[in-house]
Simulated assay, not measured.
Amino acid sequence: MSKKLFPTQEIGSLKKPSLLLSSIKKPGVSKEEKDKIRNDAAISNIRTLEELGLDIIYDGEVRRVEMYEEPVRYIDGFDFAGRVRSWDNKYYNKARVTGPVKFEQNFHENEFKFVKKNSKKEIKVPVTGAYTLADWSYNEYYKSKEDLIIALARKVLRPLIMDLVKLGAKIVQIDEPAATSHPSEMDIFRESINESVKGINAKIVVHACFSGNDYKSLAPQMPEINAEQYTLEFANRDTWNLGTSDQTRKGFQVLKLFKEYGFKGEIGIGVSDVHVDDIESPQLVRDRILFAAKTLGDASKIYVNPDCGLRTRSRTVAFNKIKSLVKGAELARQKLK
């Protein structure tokens, strides 16, 4: 694991290359040709992220259709019901749970093996969590949403993560964008993570998207969840002014609450807003990092990442944001020398 101060990392998704999308949709393209196109796209993402200087990477989820639809395709007990609109004005194929959920195969195996073989950096594997899979589905089989969530945690997420660890995964990020959207269900969310990672020997990271209550419902649960790190959104509600005061770093105030509740693990702080094309300056990134380090009182606990996956930004914008993020982290290191 990285010992560097303020290690930099991605969250997961990047916009797919236009050549990939156009090529695989052409009629008559063989499976072998599609595999080569996807491999080339994965290599391109891996090399670009390495060259930009990220310390921990993956492949931009270039092989995945979408973070929900991709795993659901391979989990027994789901039937697709049709397309619905998602938060970013895109659509995903929503499914119905019509029977007991069951892990059939490691649907990330080939993807992970390819990244592991071709990457020169540390790897963090993103997987969609049990809570989000349940929340984004129609439950027509289990007696309650909680029953479905725990079944997914035990019967799908745990065997999936265990298998990835057997293949050599050392860092696994459980993506839970739906978690904080239901503050009253945070106890269920806590149990879903703990059941998902029971008996697993790997670094577990939880990524939770921003909600209207600014992670206030998550904070009390954090010390009780078996995760070493949380990657969270801060930049999208922060000011763009330089400085490390409370007034300039309004988006990072909830860090104080994490400390009050006794969380002593790592925080991957979102320093890049994934909803806008504006590029954060390295100096702004630096100040956001320094404020977080000062607030938590332990700079070694700070990791640096975008707020979320960058798939809604153009590849040029995404890579420029990452470039600035890496430079900002270096400026923060220099400041603390």
Score class of each variant (00 low, 15 high):
Lys34His: 04
Asp298Val: 03
Val205Asn: 03
Ser192Trp: 05
Lys117Tyr: 05
Gln173Thr: 13
Ile289Tyr: 04
Ile188Glu: 12
Val62Tyr: 00
Glu10Pro: 04
Lys294Ala: 15
Lys25Val: 05
Thr295Tyr: 12
Leu284Asp: 10
Asn320Pro: 04
Gln229Lys: 09
Thr48Pro: 02
Arg315Trp: 02
Ala293Ile: 15
His207Met: 06
Asn39Arg: 00
Phe189Gly: 03
Asp59Asn: 01
Asn305Ser: 03
Cys308Ile: 12
Trp136Lys: 10
Ile11Ser: 05
Glu111Asn: 00
Ser272Val: 03
Lys124Ala: 02
Gly268Phe: 10
Arg83Ala: 03
Met67Ser: 05
Ile174Thr: 09
Glu140Leu: 15
Glu280His: 01
Asn201Gly: 11
Lys259Gln: 14
Ile279Ser: 05
Ile193Gln: 00
Ile289Arg: 09
Leu19Ala: 13
Asp40Leu: 04
Glu109Tyr: 00
Leu232Gly: 08
Thr244His: 08
Lys113Cys: 09
Gly77Lys: 15
Asn194Glu: 00
Ala130Cys: 09
Leu49Pro: 07
Val97Trp: 14
Asn139Met: 15
His108Val: 01
Lys25Leu: 06
Phe112Trp: 02
Ser2Pro: 12
Gly60Gln: 01
Val156Asn: 14
Pro183Asp: 05
Val127Lys: 03
Lys145Pro: 11
Gly265Met: 08
Glu224Lys: 01
Glu185Cys: 06
Ile200Tyr: 03
Lys145His: 14
Ala134Gly: 11
Ala151Asn: 13
Val326Phe: 08
Ser314Arg: 07
Lys4Gln: 12
Asn45Thr: 03
Glu122Thr: 13
Lys155Arg: 12
Cys308Ser: 14
Asn93Gln: 09
Leu310Thr: 04
Gln283Phe: 12
Val317His: 04
Glu233Trp: 10
Glu330Tyr: 02
Ser196Val: 00
Ile43Cys: 07
Phe210Met: 08
Ser300Leu: 09
Lys90Asn: 10
Ala235Met: 03
Val274His: 13
Ala134Ile: 15
Glu122Ile: 10
Ile269Asn: 10
Arg237Glu: 07
Ala332Leu: 15
Ser300Phe: 09
Gln253Ser: 01
Gly77Cys: 13
Glu260Asn: 06
Gln105Cys: 03
Ser245Thr: 12
Asn89Phe: 12
Lys323Asn: 10
Thr295Phe: 11
Phe291Leu: 09
Met1Ser: 09
Glu140Met: 13
Gln221Ile: 08
Arg286Lys: 13
Leu148Gln: 15
Leu284Tyr: 08
Ala235Phe: 01
Arg288Asn: 14
Lys216Trp: 12
Lys216Arg: 14
Glu140Arg: 15
Tyr58His: 04
Ser192Ile: 04
Lys170His: 12
Arg286Met: 15
Lys145Ser: 14
Ser217Trp: 13
Gly12Gln: 04
Leu336Arg: 00
Asp35Val: 02
Phe103Gly: 00
Thr180His: 15
His108Arg: 01
Arg38Asn: 07
Ile149Pro: 11
Glu260Pro: 04
Lys26Cys: 10
Ile57Asp: 05
Pro7Asn: 13
Met67Asp: 02
Tyr303Gln: 13
Leu152Gly: 11
Ala134Val: 12
Glu224Ile: 01
Asn93Met: 08
Pro100Asn: 15
Phe210Tyr: 06
Ile43Phe: 06
Pro159Cys: 01
Lys36His: 06
Ile302Gly: 10
Lys250Ala: 12
Ser86Val: 05
Ala219Glu: 07
Asn305Arg: 03
Asp277Leu: 02
